[in-house]
Write a protein that binds this DNA or RNA. Structure first.
Lengths: 240, 240
DNA sequence: GATAACTTGCACAGCAGTGTGCAAGTTCGT
DNA sequence: ACGAACTTGCACACTGCTGTGCAAGTTATC
Protein backbone atom coordinates (compact mmCIF):
# COMPACT_ATOMS: atom_id res chain seq x y z
CA UNK A 1 0.00 0.00 0.00
CA UNK A 2 2.05 2.88 -1.30
CA UNK A 3 0.44 5.85 0.37
CA UNK A 4 2.21 8.93 -0.90
CA UNK A 5 0.60 11.55 1.27
CA UNK A 6 -2.81 10.24 2.17
CA UNK A 7 -4.11 8.87 -1.13
CA UNK A 8 -3.73 5.34 -2.42
CA UNK A 9 -1.97 5.79 -5.75
CA UNK A 10 -0.88 3.23 -8.24
CA UNK A 11 2.83 2.88 -8.87
CA UNK A 12 4.01 4.86 -11.88
CA UNK A 13 4.22 2.85 -15.07
CA UNK A 14 7.56 1.37 -15.89
CA UNK A 15 7.66 2.60 -19.46
CA UNK A 16 7.41 6.17 -18.26
CA UNK A 17 10.85 5.99 -16.73
CA UNK A 18 12.08 4.24 -19.84
CA UNK A 19 10.73 7.03 -22.01
CA UNK A 20 12.39 9.58 -19.81
CA UNK A 21 15.68 7.84 -20.37
CA UNK A 22 14.97 7.60 -24.08
CA UNK A 23 14.40 11.33 -24.14
CA UNK A 24 17.67 12.02 -22.39
CA UNK A 25 19.52 9.70 -24.74
CA UNK A 26 17.88 11.18 -27.81
CA UNK A 27 18.57 14.67 -26.57
CA UNK A 28 22.20 13.79 -26.05
CA UNK A 29 22.53 12.38 -29.53
CA UNK A 30 20.54 15.07 -31.28
CA UNK A 31 22.12 18.01 -29.50
CA UNK A 32 25.56 16.67 -30.22
CA UNK A 33 24.88 17.13 -33.90
CA UNK A 34 22.62 20.16 -33.76
CA UNK A 35 23.17 21.98 -30.49
CA UNK A 36 20.20 24.23 -31.21
CA UNK A 37 17.79 21.46 -32.08
CA UNK A 38 14.22 22.04 -30.98
CA UNK A 39 12.05 19.88 -28.78
CA UNK A 40 10.30 18.51 -31.85
CA UNK A 41 13.54 17.04 -33.15
CA UNK A 42 14.56 15.63 -29.81
CA UNK A 43 11.19 14.14 -29.03
CA UNK A 44 10.77 12.46 -32.37
CA UNK A 45 14.31 11.13 -32.15
CA UNK A 46 13.16 9.47 -28.96
CA UNK A 47 10.08 8.14 -30.71
CA UNK A 48 7.79 10.43 -28.79
CA UNK A 49 5.74 13.49 -29.54
CA UNK A 50 6.83 16.96 -28.55
CA UNK A 51 3.86 17.13 -26.24
CA UNK A 52 5.03 14.10 -24.27
CA UNK A 53 8.23 15.83 -23.27
CA UNK A 54 6.29 18.07 -20.94
CA UNK A 55 5.16 14.97 -19.11
CA UNK A 56 8.73 14.36 -18.02
CA UNK A 57 10.38 17.73 -17.91
CA UNK A 58 9.13 21.18 -17.12
CA UNK A 59 10.49 22.38 -20.42
CA UNK A 60 13.40 22.46 -22.76
CA UNK A 61 15.74 24.08 -20.29
CA UNK A 62 15.04 21.53 -17.60
CA UNK A 63 15.66 18.69 -20.02
CA UNK A 64 18.99 20.12 -20.98
CA UNK A 65 19.74 20.87 -17.37
CA UNK A 66 19.26 17.22 -16.53
CA UNK A 67 21.53 16.31 -19.40
CA UNK A 68 24.20 18.67 -18.22
CA UNK A 69 23.95 17.46 -14.66
CA UNK A 70 24.27 13.86 -15.72
CA UNK A 71 27.21 14.55 -17.98
CA UNK A 72 28.96 16.63 -15.38
CA UNK A 73 28.48 13.94 -12.76
CA UNK A 74 30.14 11.46 -15.05
CA UNK A 75 33.09 13.71 -15.68
CA UNK A 76 33.40 14.68 -12.04
CA UNK A 77 33.44 11.03 -11.07
CA UNK A 78 36.20 10.39 -13.55
CA UNK A 79 38.24 13.19 -12.10
CA UNK A 80 37.55 12.18 -8.51
CA UNK A 81 38.36 8.48 -8.77
CA UNK A 82 41.74 9.08 -10.23
CA UNK A 83 45.22 9.58 -8.98
CA UNK A 84 48.75 8.54 -9.60
CA UNK A 85 51.93 9.34 -7.72
CA UNK A 86 53.52 10.58 -10.91
CA UNK A 87 51.65 13.76 -11.74
CA UNK A 88 52.13 13.79 -15.52
CA UNK A 89 50.86 10.23 -15.62
CA UNK A 90 47.87 11.26 -13.55
CA UNK A 91 47.07 14.02 -16.00
CA UNK A 92 47.49 11.76 -19.02
CA UNK A 93 45.26 9.26 -17.31
CA UNK A 94 42.62 11.89 -16.82
CA UNK A 95 42.73 12.69 -20.51
CA UNK A 96 42.50 9.04 -21.41
CA UNK A 97 39.51 8.53 -19.15
CA UNK A 98 37.78 11.51 -20.66
CA UNK A 99 38.19 9.88 -24.03
CA UNK A 100 35.78 7.20 -22.90
CA UNK A 101 33.20 9.86 -22.24
CA UNK A 102 33.62 11.78 -25.47
CA UNK A 103 29.94 12.34 -26.12
CA UNK A 104 29.49 13.85 -22.70
CA UNK A 105 32.42 16.16 -23.12
CA UNK A 106 31.24 17.20 -26.56
CA UNK A 107 27.79 17.97 -25.29
CA UNK A 108 29.02 19.88 -22.28
CA UNK A 109 31.42 21.83 -24.47
CA UNK A 110 28.60 22.78 -26.82
CA UNK A 111 26.34 23.88 -24.00
CA UNK A 112 29.11 25.81 -22.30
CA UNK A 113 28.77 28.31 -25.12
CA UNK A 114 24.96 28.41 -25.47
CA UNK A 115 23.55 31.30 -23.54
CA UNK A 116 21.03 29.92 -21.11
CA UNK A 117 23.40 27.21 -19.87
CA UNK A 118 26.84 28.78 -19.61
CA UNK A 119 26.77 29.35 -15.89
CA UNK A 120 25.22 26.00 -15.14
CA UNK A 121 27.90 24.11 -17.03
CA UNK A 122 30.62 26.12 -15.37
CA UNK A 123 29.15 25.42 -11.94
CA UNK A 124 28.53 21.73 -12.60
CA UNK A 125 32.07 21.25 -13.79
CA UNK A 126 33.69 22.99 -10.85
CA UNK A 127 34.86 19.71 -9.27
CA UNK A 128 36.83 18.60 -12.33
CA UNK A 129 38.35 22.03 -12.60
CA UNK A 130 39.24 21.87 -8.95
CA UNK A 131 40.89 18.49 -9.40
CA UNK A 132 42.82 19.55 -12.46
CA UNK A 133 43.92 22.61 -10.55
CA UNK A 134 45.26 20.45 -7.73
CA UNK A 135 47.11 18.16 -10.07
CA UNK A 136 48.64 21.03 -11.95
CA UNK A 137 49.75 22.82 -8.83
CA UNK A 138 51.25 19.65 -7.47
CA UNK A 139 52.98 18.98 -10.76
CA UNK A 140 54.48 22.42 -10.91
CA UNK A 141 55.72 22.20 -7.35
CA UNK A 142 57.37 18.90 -8.08
CA UNK A 143 58.95 20.35 -11.17
CA UNK A 144 57.22 17.71 -13.24
CA UNK A 145 55.11 20.17 -15.20
CA UNK A 146 56.02 23.41 -16.92
CA UNK A 147 56.89 26.16 -14.48
CA UNK A 148 56.49 29.06 -16.85
CA UNK A 149 52.88 29.95 -16.30
CA UNK A 150 50.22 30.52 -13.71
CA UNK A 151 48.77 27.21 -12.43
CA UNK A 152 45.22 28.43 -12.97
CA UNK A 153 45.97 29.33 -16.55
CA UNK A 154 47.83 26.12 -17.23
CA UNK A 155 44.93 24.14 -15.82
CA UNK A 156 42.49 25.85 -18.17
CA UNK A 157 44.76 25.34 -21.14
CA UNK A 158 45.13 21.65 -20.38
CA UNK A 159 41.38 21.39 -20.08
CA UNK A 160 40.96 23.07 -23.44
CA UNK A 161 43.66 20.91 -25.01
CA UNK A 162 41.73 17.83 -24.03
CA UNK A 163 38.48 19.23 -25.33
CA UNK A 164 40.20 20.17 -28.57
CA UNK A 165 41.08 16.57 -29.29
CA UNK A 166 37.67 15.31 -28.30
CA UNK A 167 36.05 17.77 -30.67
CA UNK A 168 38.50 16.96 -33.39
CA UNK A 169 37.46 13.36 -33.01
CA UNK A 170 34.12 14.13 -34.64
CA UNK A 171 35.77 15.71 -37.67
CA UNK A 172 38.70 13.45 -38.33
CA UNK A 173 37.47 9.92 -37.98
CA UNK A 174 39.63 8.83 -35.10
CA UNK A 175 39.26 5.28 -33.97
CA UNK A 176 39.28 4.48 -30.29
CA UNK A 177 42.95 3.67 -30.01
CA UNK A 178 44.06 6.76 -31.91
CA UNK A 179 41.89 9.06 -29.86
CA UNK A 180 43.04 7.50 -26.64
CA UNK A 181 46.67 8.18 -27.44
CA UNK A 182 46.03 11.57 -28.97
CA UNK A 183 44.35 13.07 -25.93
CA UNK A 184 47.24 12.05 -23.77
CA UNK A 185 49.80 13.42 -26.17
CA UNK A 186 47.96 16.68 -26.52
CA UNK A 187 47.44 17.11 -22.82
CA UNK A 188 51.03 16.27 -21.98
CA UNK A 189 52.32 18.60 -24.64
CA UNK A 190 50.34 21.45 -23.19
CA UNK A 191 51.58 20.47 -19.77
CA UNK A 192 55.11 21.12 -20.94
CA UNK A 193 56.51 17.76 -21.91
CA UNK A 194 58.36 17.37 -25.17
CA UNK A 195 56.81 14.95 -27.61
CA UNK A 196 59.41 12.20 -27.24
CA UNK A 197 59.20 12.52 -23.49
CA UNK A 198 55.43 12.29 -23.61
CA UNK A 199 55.52 9.30 -25.93
CA UNK A 200 58.04 7.52 -23.74
CA UNK A 201 55.95 8.21 -20.67
CA UNK A 202 52.85 6.77 -22.26
CA UNK A 203 54.63 3.70 -23.53
CA UNK A 204 56.26 3.08 -20.17
CA UNK A 205 53.17 3.36 -18.00
CA UNK A 206 50.95 0.30 -18.24
CA UNK A 207 48.05 2.28 -16.76
CA UNK A 208 48.04 4.41 -19.87
CA UNK A 209 47.91 1.57 -22.33
CA UNK A 210 44.83 1.32 -24.45
CA UNK A 211 42.59 -1.59 -23.60
CA UNK A 212 39.93 -2.10 -26.28
CA UNK A 213 36.26 -1.63 -25.48
CA UNK A 214 35.17 -3.85 -22.57
CA UNK A 215 31.93 -5.03 -24.22
CA UNK A 216 30.36 -4.62 -27.66
CA UNK A 217 28.92 -1.26 -26.73
CA UNK A 218 31.35 0.89 -28.67
CA UNK A 219 31.78 4.58 -27.91
CA UNK A 220 30.80 5.82 -31.34
CA UNK A 221 31.81 9.39 -32.12
CA UNK A 222 29.95 9.81 -35.39
CA UNK A 223 26.30 9.64 -34.37
CA UNK A 224 23.82 7.29 -36.03
CA UNK A 225 21.72 9.90 -37.90
CA UNK A 226 19.63 10.21 -34.75
CA UNK A 227 16.33 8.30 -34.52
CA UNK A 228 18.25 5.43 -32.96
CA UNK A 229 16.93 4.76 -29.47
CA UNK A 230 20.36 3.94 -28.04
CA UNK A 231 19.12 3.07 -24.59
CA UNK A 232 21.76 2.61 -21.94
CA UNK A 233 24.23 5.40 -22.33
CA UNK A 234 23.24 8.07 -19.90
CA UNK A 235 24.45 7.22 -16.48
CA UNK A 236 25.60 3.65 -16.12
CA UNK A 237 28.66 1.44 -16.25
CA UNK A 238 31.92 2.63 -14.78
CA UNK A 239 34.81 0.29 -14.43
CA UNK A 240 38.58 0.59 -14.56
CA UNK B 1 28.88 64.74 -64.48
CA UNK B 2 28.62 61.26 -63.06
CA UNK B 3 26.20 59.58 -65.40
CA UNK B 4 25.67 56.06 -64.11
CA UNK B 5 23.57 54.66 -66.90
CA UNK B 6 21.70 57.59 -68.34
CA UNK B 7 20.55 59.45 -65.24
CA UNK B 8 22.41 62.18 -63.43
CA UNK B 9 22.77 60.92 -59.88
CA UNK B 10 24.29 62.60 -56.90
CA UNK B 11 27.25 60.91 -55.24
CA UNK B 12 26.34 58.90 -52.17
CA UNK B 13 26.71 60.72 -48.91
CA UNK B 14 29.95 60.25 -47.09
CA UNK B 15 28.39 59.52 -43.69
CA UNK B 16 26.62 56.53 -45.13
CA UNK B 17 29.88 54.71 -45.55
CA UNK B 18 30.89 55.84 -42.09
CA UNK B 19 27.70 54.40 -40.64
CA UNK B 20 28.31 51.18 -42.43
CA UNK B 21 31.68 50.94 -40.78
CA UNK B 22 30.16 51.87 -37.44
CA UNK B 23 27.72 49.04 -37.84
CA UNK B 24 30.47 46.57 -38.59
CA UNK B 25 32.49 47.75 -35.64
CA UNK B 26 29.52 47.66 -33.32
CA UNK B 27 28.57 44.24 -34.57
CA UNK B 28 32.08 43.01 -33.94
CA UNK B 29 32.09 44.37 -30.41
CA UNK B 30 28.57 43.29 -29.56
CA UNK B 31 28.78 39.81 -31.00
CA UNK B 32 32.03 39.20 -29.20
CA UNK B 33 30.18 39.52 -25.93
CA UNK B 34 26.81 38.12 -26.97
CA UNK B 35 27.24 35.99 -30.06
CA UNK B 36 23.49 35.71 -30.44
CA UNK B 37 22.78 39.40 -30.10
CA UNK B 38 19.91 40.69 -32.21
CA UNK B 39 19.98 43.46 -34.78
CA UNK B 40 18.42 45.81 -32.29
CA UNK B 41 21.40 45.48 -29.95
CA UNK B 42 23.94 45.82 -32.74
CA UNK B 43 22.24 48.78 -34.36
CA UNK B 44 21.82 50.73 -31.18
CA UNK B 45 25.42 49.98 -30.23
CA UNK B 46 26.30 51.70 -33.48
CA UNK B 47 24.05 54.61 -32.62
CA UNK B 48 21.55 53.71 -35.31
CA UNK B 49 18.08 52.27 -35.45
CA UNK B 50 17.42 48.69 -36.34
CA UNK B 51 15.64 49.87 -39.45
CA UNK B 52 18.74 51.62 -40.72
CA UNK B 53 20.68 48.39 -40.84
CA UNK B 54 18.64 47.31 -43.83
CA UNK B 55 19.89 50.33 -45.68
CA UNK B 56 23.39 48.88 -45.61
CA UNK B 57 22.95 45.14 -45.46
CA UNK B 58 20.36 42.83 -46.86
CA UNK B 59 19.85 41.38 -43.42
CA UNK B 60 21.45 40.00 -40.33
CA UNK B 61 23.20 37.18 -42.13
CA UNK B 62 24.76 39.45 -44.69
CA UNK B 63 26.04 41.76 -41.99
CA UNK B 64 27.67 38.89 -40.19
CA UNK B 65 28.93 37.50 -43.48
CA UNK B 66 30.72 40.79 -44.12
CA UNK B 67 32.18 40.62 -40.66
CA UNK B 68 33.41 37.11 -41.17
CA UNK B 69 34.88 37.93 -44.54
CA UNK B 70 36.73 40.90 -43.14
CA UNK B 71 38.05 39.00 -40.16
CA UNK B 72 39.11 36.07 -42.28
CA UNK B 73 40.93 38.37 -44.69
CA UNK B 74 42.88 39.77 -41.80
CA UNK B 75 43.87 36.37 -40.53
CA UNK B 76 44.68 35.07 -43.97
CA UNK B 77 46.93 38.05 -44.56
CA UNK B 78 48.72 37.37 -41.33
CA UNK B 79 49.32 33.79 -42.33
CA UNK B 80 50.35 34.69 -45.86
CA UNK B 81 52.89 37.42 -45.07
CA UNK B 82 54.82 35.24 -42.72
CA UNK B 83 57.70 32.89 -42.89
CA UNK B 84 60.88 31.96 -41.14
CA UNK B 85 63.55 29.45 -42.06
CA UNK B 86 63.20 27.85 -38.65
CA UNK B 87 59.78 26.23 -38.69
CA UNK B 88 59.03 26.29 -34.96
CA UNK B 89 59.88 29.96 -34.96
CA UNK B 90 57.56 30.48 -37.89
CA UNK B 91 54.75 28.80 -36.03
CA UNK B 92 55.37 30.74 -32.85
CA UNK B 93 55.42 33.89 -34.92
CA UNK B 94 52.08 33.01 -36.42
CA UNK B 95 50.67 32.60 -32.95
CA UNK B 96 52.12 35.89 -31.85
CA UNK B 97 50.67 37.69 -34.84
CA UNK B 98 47.29 36.23 -34.19
CA UNK B 99 47.48 37.67 -30.71
CA UNK B 100 47.30 41.10 -32.27
CA UNK B 101 44.05 40.17 -33.90
CA UNK B 102 42.40 38.59 -30.88
CA UNK B 103 38.99 40.13 -31.41
CA UNK B 104 38.84 38.79 -34.94
CA UNK B 105 39.84 35.33 -33.86
CA UNK B 106 37.34 35.39 -31.03
CA UNK B 107 34.56 36.44 -33.33
CA UNK B 108 35.41 33.91 -35.97
CA UNK B 109 35.66 31.20 -33.35
CA UNK B 110 32.23 32.10 -32.03
CA UNK B 111 30.66 32.11 -35.48
CA UNK B 112 32.35 28.87 -36.43
CA UNK B 113 29.92 27.18 -34.06
CA UNK B 114 26.74 29.13 -34.86
CA UNK B 115 24.66 27.29 -37.35
CA UNK B 116 24.09 29.54 -40.32
CA UNK B 117 27.78 30.46 -40.56
CA UNK B 118 29.75 27.30 -39.91
CA UNK B 119 30.51 26.53 -43.52
CA UNK B 120 31.27 30.10 -44.41
CA UNK B 121 33.85 30.46 -41.66
CA UNK B 122 35.43 27.18 -42.60
CA UNK B 123 35.66 28.24 -46.24
CA UNK B 124 36.92 31.73 -45.49
CA UNK B 125 39.63 30.38 -43.26
CA UNK B 126 40.88 27.80 -45.71
CA UNK B 127 44.00 29.82 -46.59
CA UNK B 128 45.26 29.99 -42.99
CA UNK B 129 44.58 26.33 -42.58
CA UNK B 130 46.47 25.65 -45.77
CA UNK B 131 49.42 27.69 -44.56
CA UNK B 132 49.50 26.04 -41.16
CA UNK B 133 49.33 22.71 -42.91
CA UNK B 134 52.37 23.59 -45.00
CA UNK B 135 54.36 24.75 -42.03
CA UNK B 136 53.50 21.69 -40.02
CA UNK B 137 54.37 19.30 -42.83
CA UNK B 138 57.64 21.08 -43.39
CA UNK B 139 58.39 21.02 -39.68
CA UNK B 140 57.73 17.35 -39.39
CA UNK B 141 59.89 16.56 -42.39
CA UNK B 142 62.73 18.55 -40.91
CA UNK B 143 62.30 16.76 -37.64
CA UNK B 144 61.70 20.08 -35.94
CA UNK B 145 58.14 19.29 -34.93
CA UNK B 146 56.64 16.22 -33.31
CA UNK B 147 56.60 13.24 -35.62
CA UNK B 148 54.06 11.22 -33.73
CA UNK B 149 50.88 12.29 -35.40
CA UNK B 150 49.24 12.98 -38.72
CA UNK B 151 50.20 16.44 -40.09
CA UNK B 152 46.58 17.33 -40.72
CA UNK B 153 45.64 16.49 -37.19
CA UNK B 154 48.60 18.29 -35.71
CA UNK B 155 47.75 21.36 -37.73
CA UNK B 156 44.21 21.41 -36.38
CA UNK B 157 45.41 20.90 -32.85
CA UNK B 158 47.86 23.76 -33.12
CA UNK B 159 45.11 25.93 -34.50
CA UNK B 160 42.90 25.05 -31.59
CA UNK B 161 45.69 25.57 -29.11
CA UNK B 162 46.10 29.11 -30.35
CA UNK B 163 42.38 29.75 -30.19
CA UNK B 164 42.28 28.33 -26.69
CA UNK B 165 44.66 30.97 -25.43
CA UNK B 166 42.90 33.74 -27.28
CA UNK B 167 39.61 32.73 -25.73
CA UNK B 168 41.19 32.36 -22.34
CA UNK B 169 42.38 35.93 -22.70
CA UNK B 170 38.83 37.17 -22.24
CA UNK B 171 38.38 35.25 -19.01
CA UNK B 172 41.71 35.67 -17.28
CA UNK B 173 42.72 39.26 -17.69
CA UNK B 174 45.87 38.79 -19.68
CA UNK B 175 47.80 41.87 -20.54
CA UNK B 176 49.32 42.23 -23.97
CA UNK B 177 52.76 40.95 -23.07
CA UNK B 178 51.44 37.92 -21.21
CA UNK B 179 49.10 36.94 -23.99
CA UNK B 180 51.80 37.36 -26.58
CA UNK B 181 54.08 34.94 -24.79
CA UNK B 182 51.33 32.55 -23.81
CA UNK B 183 50.11 31.91 -27.34
CA UNK B 184 53.61 31.06 -28.43
CA UNK B 185 54.20 28.77 -25.49
CA UNK B 186 50.92 27.00 -26.00
CA UNK B 187 51.38 26.60 -29.72
CA UNK B 188 54.92 25.34 -29.37
CA UNK B 189 53.92 22.94 -26.65
CA UNK B 190 51.28 21.43 -28.87
CA UNK B 191 53.81 21.29 -31.67
CA UNK B 192 55.92 18.99 -29.56
CA UNK B 193 58.52 21.19 -27.92
CA UNK B 194 59.23 20.83 -24.23
CA UNK B 195 58.52 23.89 -22.16
CA UNK B 196 62.16 24.82 -21.49
CA UNK B 197 62.93 24.31 -25.14
CA UNK B 198 60.03 26.51 -26.14
CA UNK B 199 60.98 29.19 -23.65
CA UNK B 200 64.56 29.19 -24.82
CA UNK B 201 63.48 29.43 -28.43
CA UNK B 202 61.29 32.42 -27.72
CA UNK B 203 63.94 34.20 -25.71
CA UNK B 204 66.55 33.57 -28.36
CA UNK B 205 64.61 34.76 -31.38
CA UNK B 206 64.38 38.55 -31.58
CA UNK B 207 61.48 38.27 -34.01
CA UNK B 208 59.42 36.74 -31.26
CA UNK B 209 60.10 39.44 -28.70
CA UNK B 210 57.13 41.45 -27.60
CA UNK B 211 57.15 44.98 -28.83
CA UNK B 212 54.46 47.09 -27.14
CA UNK B 213 51.61 48.54 -29.15
CA UNK B 214 52.88 50.59 -32.14
CA UNK B 215 50.60 53.57 -31.51
CA UNK B 216 48.04 54.44 -28.86
CA UNK B 217 45.47 52.20 -30.48
CA UNK B 218 45.76 49.28 -28.10
CA UNK B 219 44.35 45.88 -28.99
CA UNK B 220 42.02 45.68 -26.02
CA UNK B 221 40.69 42.24 -25.22
CA UNK B 222 37.98 43.30 -22.82
CA UNK B 223 35.63 45.25 -25.08
CA UNK B 224 34.83 48.91 -24.39
CA UNK B 225 31.14 48.39 -23.64
CA UNK B 226 30.59 48.69 -27.38
CA UNK B 227 29.62 52.03 -28.96
CA UNK B 228 33.30 52.74 -29.68
CA UNK B 229 33.72 53.47 -33.40
CA UNK B 230 37.23 51.98 -33.72
CA UNK B 231 37.65 52.88 -37.38
CA UNK B 232 40.68 51.39 -39.09
CA UNK B 233 40.64 47.73 -38.24
CA UNK B 234 39.20 45.98 -41.22
CA UNK B 235 41.93 45.18 -43.67
CA UNK B 236 45.07 47.26 -43.47
CA UNK B 237 48.71 47.26 -42.34
CA UNK B 238 50.99 44.34 -43.01
CA UNK B 239 54.71 44.54 -42.40
CA UNK B 240 57.49 42.05 -41.91
C1' DG C 1 18.61 76.37 -50.46
C1' DA C 2 17.08 72.79 -53.26
C1' DT C 3 17.31 67.95 -53.45
C1' DA C 4 18.72 63.55 -53.20
C1' DA C 5 20.62 60.53 -49.73
C1' DC C 6 20.04 58.80 -45.55
C1' DT C 7 17.61 57.88 -40.96
C1' DT C 8 13.61 57.18 -38.13
C1' DG C 9 9.45 55.33 -36.22
C1' DC C 10 5.70 52.74 -36.62
C1' DA C 11 2.91 49.22 -38.34
C1' DC C 12 2.54 44.85 -40.11
C1' DA C 13 3.42 40.11 -41.73
C1' DG C 14 5.94 36.13 -40.91
C1' DC C 15 8.51 32.49 -38.83
C1' DA C 16 10.11 29.30 -35.44
C1' DG C 17 10.05 27.94 -31.25
C1' DT C 18 8.00 27.31 -26.45
C1' DG C 19 4.44 26.18 -23.07
C1' DT C 20 -0.68 24.89 -22.01
C1' DG C 21 -5.34 22.97 -22.05
C1' DC C 22 -8.18 19.39 -23.27
C1' DA C 23 -10.48 15.36 -25.31
C1' DA C 24 -9.45 11.03 -27.03
C1' DG C 25 -6.57 7.29 -27.47
C1' DT C 26 -3.27 3.46 -25.93
C1' DT C 27 -0.91 0.61 -22.59
C1' DC C 28 0.61 -1.10 -18.37
C1' DG C 29 -0.41 -2.71 -13.62
C1' DT C 30 -3.37 -4.94 -10.54
C1' DA D 1 -11.09 -5.99 -17.39
C1' DC D 2 -10.98 -1.98 -14.90
C1' DG D 3 -8.65 2.24 -14.13
C1' DA D 4 -4.94 4.93 -13.70
C1' DA D 5 -0.81 6.27 -16.03
C1' DC D 6 0.87 7.76 -20.00
C1' DT D 7 0.80 9.45 -24.99
C1' DT D 8 -1.24 11.92 -28.79
C1' DG D 9 -2.99 15.52 -31.62
C1' DC D 10 -4.81 19.68 -32.08
C1' DA D 11 -5.70 24.35 -30.88
C1' DC D 12 -4.16 28.33 -28.89
C1' DA D 13 -1.52 32.16 -26.76
C1' DC D 14 2.83 34.10 -26.42
C1' DT D 15 7.62 35.51 -27.10
C1' DG D 16 11.42 37.15 -29.71
C1' DC D 17 13.27 37.70 -33.59
C1' DT D 18 13.55 39.04 -38.86
C1' DG D 19 12.24 41.61 -42.90
C1' DT D 20 9.22 45.22 -45.39
C1' DG D 21 6.47 49.33 -46.60
C1' DC D 22 5.74 53.96 -46.04
C1' DA D 23 5.40 58.75 -44.48
C1' DA D 24 7.99 62.12 -42.25
C1' DG D 25 12.11 63.76 -40.63
C1' DT D 26 17.24 65.12 -40.86
C1' DT D 27 21.57 66.09 -43.22
C1' DA D 28 25.26 66.18 -46.49
C1' DT D 29 26.14 67.71 -50.96
C1' DC D 30 25.48 70.08 -55.20
Amino acid sequence: MPTITEEVRRAPRRDAAANREALLAAASATLNEHPDAGLEAIASAAGLSRRAVYGHFAGRDELIAALIASGATRLNDIAATLDHPHTPTAIALLGARLWHAVEHVQLLAAMAVREPHVDQVAAALAPVRERVGELVTRGIDEGALRGDMNPQTLARLIERAAIAVLLEASVARLDDAEGHRLVMLSVLGTAGLGWREAGALIDAAPELAYCPAPAGVGTTAGAPTAAAPADAETGEEARA
